[in-house]
Design a protein around this nucleic acid. Structure first.
Lengths: 243, 243
DNA sequence: GTTTATTTGTTCGTATGTATT
DNA sequence: AAATACATACGAACAAATAAA
């Protein structure tokens, strides 16, 4: 039997502790953090470890630093929706203590998929593709409708009910997911979506196209999602200097 | 007299060379890069230097890696609009060889600014604020209207004409800009914007709120921008594992 | 299925360079 | 001009995940 990973990396412990201090108000924005040298002494580790810890907090948009000046705490956006973008619906819901659920609207084989999809997934023409339509509900209100297109390989033997949970988790049994490219646009609600999202015609929506890839750049699935614009905001942080 | 920085950091040379090889098709997605150890031998440097170079390319969404497996080239989104988000209108225009220009629509003092703005800029109530409205034009078509709100300090002695160029450049004479928080929403075009952006009423727009801060978390300016949804797409890349 | 080799991850010590105050 | 603080870089060693034998 294997032992659990109870001992995290040192730089993870350090960055967790710094993050804790920020939440406790010990380190506040507007004021400089202790220098890397001092932190290294305090945590009894090398400066490189401190630098790695700080680097991770910079990636998480929690700290900023500048050569010769020092490191500072970044102000937090009022509502934090994760690192970047729209991902993590279920996790975001949990974070706010809200009830979220997923409905599988349909799951079926498509014999004549749009070129756009065939192209994005780098498949031969006339390859059969499976379409999965799901709806996400937050506190009894429909928030998102997502249409997902996958090749047969990933859904062999699966039925509607299998898609109630996390798609990522399901797919990672077959392939390791590495990254996805997303494109966000503003569109007007279409009749079909008006019903599913319970918004009147003429309302604007956020439409997100994405393609998700494995490490070796194999496309895994294509996704078009629609977000109610009165409930969903896309948040990002831009940093000027990427030291 | 000081010598110019002709000699870049070694890890910058290495990452530039790797990037070049990717563009030349020497390193392609779907195939593993040489190991860090081998690259270190080839570039005659330490493994840490290679790791730093690779790390930077990962930050730029050019590479992905996975422990025990190796590093891979990420597929590029069809149209590359920069690191993340909507920033860099002028640069993006240049990259496509298009003509871009900026019009200053108005620049005036506002005596009763909205609470939303006072709040975002952390100012006292009834503090006078300056409003700058600009329009960006790409290939003779209006693309963006931006409303920017700044306190007196940053615009003292400036006139309309001073805002034709880069706002960032102008402000950095006074304060160093560190980062900004952005929120993207889908809205319907308002009458005023319909004219400025030359789109019919009822059309959707992308609306972006942002607050820009200095290193010490002082708010510098508040910005509400409107993007034509038929011309502008917001692009991001999400990475699953952030090693 | 176990062992071995490969590959990335973590960490230290040390030294020197460069920007800021 | 000096002190402080971050940036770059090397060498070395061991850990952990993965893939190959």
């Amino acid at each position: 039997m294997k032992e659990k990973k109870t001992t995290k990396a040192k730089f993870d412990q350090v960055s967790a502790e710094i993050e804790k201090r920020i939440h406790e108000g010990i380190y506040v924005s507007a004021q400089k953090l202790p220098s890397e040298y001092d932190l290294a002494k305090e945590f009894d580790c090398s400066r490189l470890t401190i630098r790695k810890a700080i680097d991770d907090l910079i990636k998480k948009n929690i700290l900023v630093k500048h050569r010769g000046k020092g490191s500072y705490v970044m102000t937090q956006p009022k509502i934090q929706s994760g690192r970047s973008g729209l991902q993590g619906f279920t996790e975001a819901a949990k974070a706010y203590g809200k009830t979220s659920s997923t409905e599988v609207i349909s799951f079926k084989k498509i014999n004549e998929p749009a070129d756009e999809i065939i192209n994005a997934l780098q498949l031969e023409e006339d390859t059969p593709i499976y379409e999965l339509v799901r709806r996400r509900i937050l506190d009894n209100e429909p928030m998102t409708v997502e249409k997902i297109y996958l090749s047969e390989y990933y859904v062999k033997g699966l039925t509607k009910e299998d898609f109630i949970g996390s798609l990522f988790q399901l797919l990672e049994e077959k392939t390791e997911i590495a990254y996805s490219h997303q494109e966000v646009e503003a569109i007007l609600v279409k009749p079909e979506l008006s019903k599913l999202l319970d918004v009147p015609m003429g309302d604007p929506l956020l439409q997100v196209h994405s393609v998700t890839y494995a490490l070796d750049a194999t496309p895994i699935f294509y996704d078009i999602s629609y977000y109610r614009s009165d409930r969903y905001v896309f948040k990002t942080t831009l940093t000027r200097y990427n030291h």
